[in-house]
């Protein structure tokens, strides 16, 4: 599975909305939509670091970096590129 797919799957496993037909795009802000609970920001940070074996620095813990699948994918890709430079 690619990076965006893994992130999307993790978000879906942690949604706290109960309609069967719920959906979100890669650019939807999952926090603004109320799709996740108050613990999710912490869980998401842990997930991204462990799943992709990267270290997110404190100055990178911006909500914008974690607000959508696309933004997280961008952050993860940039961290992976840094690691290989």
């Amino acid at each position: 599975m690619n990076i965006a797919g893994k992130i999307r799957e993790f978000i879906q496993e942690n949604l706290v909305v109960w309609e069967d037909d719920i959906s979100f795009s890669d650019t939807d802000n999952i926090f603004q939509l109320g799709f996740v609970n108050s613990l999710f920001a912490m869980k998401l940070l842990n997930f991204v670091e462990i799943e992709f074996d990267i270290k997110i620095e404190n100055n990178e813990i911006e909500l914008v970096n974690f607000s959508s699948v696309a933004n997280m994918e961008r952050l993860v890709k940039s961290k992976l590129m840094q690691a290989h430079e």
């Binding site: 108050s38 613990l39 920001a41 912490m42 940070l45 404190n58 100055n59 813990i61 909500l63």
Partner: peptide
């Protein structure tokens, strides 16, 4: 500790 503005979302929850 951490970064300004992440006190609730990350520090307290952790």
């Amino acid at each position: 500790l951490g970064k300004e503005g992440i006190g609730l979302s990350h520090i307290i929850n952790t």
